[in-house]
């Protein structure tokens, strides 16, 4: 064996090249994470089937007309569930990173020259992809089974795009910050699932926002999900549905402002609270 496994004073290695760029390592992390994600078959099946099952159940139970709009309650659910699919990042990252912290992934990575930002780029891209697939499936089912009309105007798709991207980023960052709350990977799904389910009930996913008490709406207004659902309703229900909103309008300006604030606030929260080590590790 003439190959040296490590540099020594006797056999110096050639002058090292520059370190690989953060973006390149981040893309490599995204590919690696995505491949690992799709290998956990049971998790994949449940991640993608959960919103579909909910949509089919809710869409079938509540099929009545919404008075004076020409819209159907089931269409309301499609918009709401697309909102909660875009928030999957909260759950996936909250639980996934708690797992990475517990099983030694984070500690191992911290011992390598991988730039920390590359880890988050990998998580973000992976989450965008998973959320996009979920939303695409929900859209297809909404169109096929629940008379959902995909928007035709390019401006609606533009709205869809920014609500989706800001919503996924904001809720992912919230998920990354929340991953520090569970004491271990075992408790993570319980700790993370609770706020997610509660948010879905108070943000207009399962129950139309017009039927919620005012104080509940006030609480929901603090979190991104309510605004994501509102943005998606503007895309899929159109002007006819605006009368159902509390403000009699979709308030897109406010949606953008609040989702943008969550992206920035979430980033700050992550930067100040993120731990590479588990609590057990001190």
């Amino acid at each position: 064996m003439s190959e040296t496994l490590a540099p020594s004073s006797a056999a110096p290695v050639p002058a090292p090249a520059g370190p690989p760029s953060t973006i390149r390592v981040g893309l490599s992390r995204a590919a690696f994470e995505t491949r690992m994600f799709f290998r956990e078959k049971d998790a994949v099946i449940f991640t993608f089937s959960f919103p579909i099952v909910l949509l089919v159940i809710f869409g079938s139970i509540f099929a009545q007309e919404l008075e004076g709009t020409g819209l159907n309650v089931s269409q309301l659910y499609v918009a709401g569930l697309i909102g909660s699919a875009a928030m999957t990042g909260f759950q996936n990252l909250g639980i996934g990173i708690a797992g990475d912290r517990d099983d030694g992934t984070l500690k191992r990575l911290a011992g390598t020259p991988m730039p920390p930002a590359a880890y988050f780029i990998g998580k973000a891209l992976n989450t965008l992809l998973v959320s996009a697939v979920q939303v695409a499936i929900l859209l297809a089912i909404g169109v096929a089974l629940f008379e959902l009309e995909p928007p035709s105007a390019p401006s609606d798709w533009l709205t869809f795009a920014w609500v989706f991207v800001l919503g996924v980023l904001g809720s992912s960052l919230l998920g990354i910050a929340a991953s520090g709350l569970p004491r271990s990977a075992k408790s993570a799904s319980a700790v993370i699932a609770m706020p997610f389910v509660v948010l879905q009930f108070i943000s207009g996913v399962f129950i139309p926002i017009s039927q919620l008490p005012e104080w509940v709406i006030r609480v929901a207004s603090f979190f991104p999900l309510k605004w994501m659902c509102q943005g998606f309703r503007s895309v899929f229900l159109g002007d006819g549905g605006a009368t159902l909103e509390l403000a009699k309008s979709y308030e897109l300006g406010r949606v953008a402002l609040i989702l943008g604030a969550w992206v920035i606030g979430g980033l700050l929260l992550c930067l100040t609270t993120f731990r590479w080590k588990s609590r057990r590790d001190g």
């Binding site: 090292p16 690989p20 390592v25 490599s28 690696f32 491949r35 030694g104 191992r108």
Partner: peptide, 29 residues
């Protein structure tokens, strides 16, 4: 610096080759 930690149960779904290749991408040389 190379670090081999005491316990690790991570990356269970990746193959040996994928894992080693992925980590190779972190280093300049």
């Amino acid at each position: 610096v190379g670090v081999v930690l005491q316990t690790a149960n991570d990356m269970t779904e990746a193959t040996v080759r994928e894992t080693v290749r992925h980590f190779a991408g972190y280093y300049p040389n």
